[in-house]
Design a protein around this nucleic acid. Structure first.
Length: 567
RNA sequence: UGCCCGAUGGUGUAAUUGGCAACACGUCUGACUCUGGAUCAGAAGAGUUCAGGUUCGACCCCUGAUCGGGCAACCA
């Protein structure tokens, strides 16, 4: 094994290789395929990319980066009935957003239709492919079952001439959909179902998003994928485990056409599963179509577009992909790990601001009426470069309703009658009294402040247990805050036989409230990210406008008090 | 009663290719803190699915079993 490429630069922790890196390094050491590394990310443009695809993207582009190779973006568009340009666009957006750059232009399997067709003709001439006139049902029956061998089609031994003629006429559109297929002649009794004379081409009179109506026949995945890899010079074709049984077929087709020593190799890894969510395109599409979420980029969706709108950063997703690793065993990653990686990134980069989501009025009774002063606050204690800002302080403020209790337990470090807290960046205040409405809900809390405790400059700096965030009432601005929670209440919503994942939908996955924010936020634009001090990370939604701000909650801060008091 | 994969703390991923298991998240302590965040220090938690075998020595090799996943679209 060469260690040339496994050495990490100084400061980075040195990690052991995953099984794919091990294979690649062996191949490089053996100078297989001239020691080139060329991968590809091959999505079908029939839906939006999700976090599982992000794993594949990071893997494929990551291997290319690590071994100074290349990675193609290739749209696997062999089924005109499901594929749309909208998806092509979104996929390119997502890959770019994650920070990867594909080699040259995006490729399309449809670019190879002509070549694929010629190779099909070649297979017919070699006696390795034939036109079958039977119906889908009959062909399916003849295929047998996993435990019973199939039987051969009566059309299996047609002459090359007849096959050629029929295949041409299929191509020319002379036959209706479903009337004939081209099949590879392999082995109807193979224990591997995929080798039982698989279909190579079907007749589809459908408009293709790129080739329009030129083609009346379309190649199947198995017939197109390996050859596409070959045409692009791919060396390591990484795909998920369910394609493992396809590998003999991948190799079989390549065997028939390859004349060089170069050959791509398919390697399978386990797809990502995330707890408390669903990951199949079909189920995600259902969520969108049935209106359980507001589109593919709804911040509750595990799509890349959804995560982006939720406030996740590319760095956090790449860090996530990094930590989950790559292996062949089935896995379910705790969604908490994803949340950890965003917090980790946002903690470093998100400016801190004051925002009160459930406001409770506080009156500082000994503070002059009408006076406003400005206190200085750090923008981000984690980032010394981020500077400070001035924030209005006055007699009437809002604090979080959770931060006051009439009759608190002993470990409660916040405001309560007779207790003192620090208002972050301002003064220490003491709660003298409070006022409730008729049903006992606290309406206003009355405090006194000590002018000498002013943050930083005051002569008295008493140690107080609690520090609260706050906003000054007359200058605070309102904003719509969208509080997102997990979409499903079950850890594995799709993992129950006889139960629809929709049964586990979380009815409280979105709550919309109006919060009070510090005025410096008036000019924010979509995608800006902040830490609402002591609450969590929030980002500006694309629906946000000046005067009608909208924030999405990305993730809460870790909250040991909630954990402790919840028990 | 087929074929192909896989099985290591709660969750993931490792173990210099045979020298008695490490890292991350999570959990729990404690310190620090003008964010009950972050940071720092520490702890608990698996003896590697099971049973045999080879070996001085097995997570690693062999045999068998068990459990889990995948395969019967003219989907990818």
């Amino acid at each position: 094994m060469t260690s040339t490429f496994s050495e990490e630069s100084f400061g980075e922790e040195k990690r052991s290789l995953n099984f794919i890196e091990t294979i690649i390094e062996e191949d490089i050491a053996n100078r297989k395929n001239e020691a080139r590394v060329h991968t590809r990310f091959p999505p079908e443009p029939n839906g939006y990319l999700h976090i599982g695809h992000a794993k594949s993207i990071c893997l494929n582009f990551g291997m290319a980066e690590k071994y100074q190779g290349k990675c193609n973006l290739r749209f696997d568009d062999t089924n005109p009935e499901k594929e749309e340009t909208e998806y092509v666009e979104s996929i390119m957006d997502d890959v770019r957003w994650l920070g990867f750059q594909w080699d040259k232009e995006p490729y399309y399997a449809s670019d190879y239709f002509e070549q694929l067709f010629e190779w099909a003709v070649l297979l017919i001439k070699k006696g390795l492919a034939y036109v079958d006139d039977q119906s889908q049902e009959v062909i399916s029956q003849q295929r047998g079952t996993p435990t019973r061998p199939g039987i051969e089609s009566p059309y299996r031994n047609r002459s090359v001439e007849e096959n050629l003629d029929l295949f041409m006429r299929m191509k020319n559109g002379e036959f209706p959909n479903g009337s004939r297929v081209l099949r590879a002649k392999i082995d109807m009794s193979s224990p591997n179902m995929h080798m039982r004379d698989p279909v190579m081409y079907r007749i589809l009179h459908a408009e293709h998003h790129r080739t329009d109506n030129t083609w009346k026949i379309y190649p199947m995945y198995d017939y197109a994928h390996g050859q596409s890899d070959y045409l692009e010079g791919i060396t390591h074709s990484l795909c998920t485990l369910e394609f493992e049984v396809h590998r003999p077929l991948y190799d079989w087709f390549l065997d028939q056409i390859i004349e060089t020593s170069y050959r791509p190799r398919q390697i399978e890894f386990a797809r990502l599963n995330l707890s408390y969510t669903v990951m199949s395109k079909r189920k995600l599409l259902e969520l969108v179509k049935n209106g359980h979420v507001n589109g593919w980029d709804d911040p509750r969706m595990p799509t890349i577009a959804g995560l982006r709108r939720r406030g996740y950063t590319p760095a956090s997703i790449r860090a996530f992909a990094d930590r989950i690793g790559v292996a062949k065993r089935d896995n379910v990653i705790d969604v908490g790990l994803l949340e950890f990686t965003v917090r980790e990134d946002l903690n470093k980069i998100a400016p801190r601001v004051m925002a009160v989501l459930d406001p409770l009025k506080v009156v500082i009774t000994n503070y002059p009426t009408g006076k406003i002063e400005y206190v200085e606050l750090e923008n981000n204690p984690e980032d010394p470069q981020s500077g400070t800002r001035n924030l209005a302080f006055g007699r009437e403020l809002y604090i979080e309703r959770d931060d006051f209790m009439v009759d608190p337990p002993s470990k409660y470090f916040r405001l309560a009658p007779g207790k003192e807290v620090r208002l972050k960046g301002a003064y220490v205040v003491r709660c003298e009294s409070f006022e409730t409405d008729t049903d006992g809900t606290v309406q206003t809390v009355f405090c006194t402040y000590d002018e000498e405790t002013k943050s930083g400059t005051g002569p008295k700096q008493p140690k107080v247990k609690g520090t609260l965030h706050w906003v000054e009432a007359s200058t605070a601005i309102d904003a719509e805050i969208r509080l997102y929670d997990r979409l499903f209440m079950d850890e594995d919503p799709a993992g129950h036989k006889d139960r629809d994942p929709l049964e586990f939908l979380n009815p409280d996955s979105l709550k919309i409230i109006t919060g009070k924010l510090e005025p410096s936020l008036a000019g924010v634009v979509p995608d800006e990210k902040f830490q609402f001090q002591r609450i969590g990370y929030f980002c500006v939604d694309k629906d946000s406008k000046a005067g009608a701000l909208v924030f999405n909650r990305t993730v809460l801060l870790k909250d040991n008090w909630a954990k402790q008091s919840g028990k």
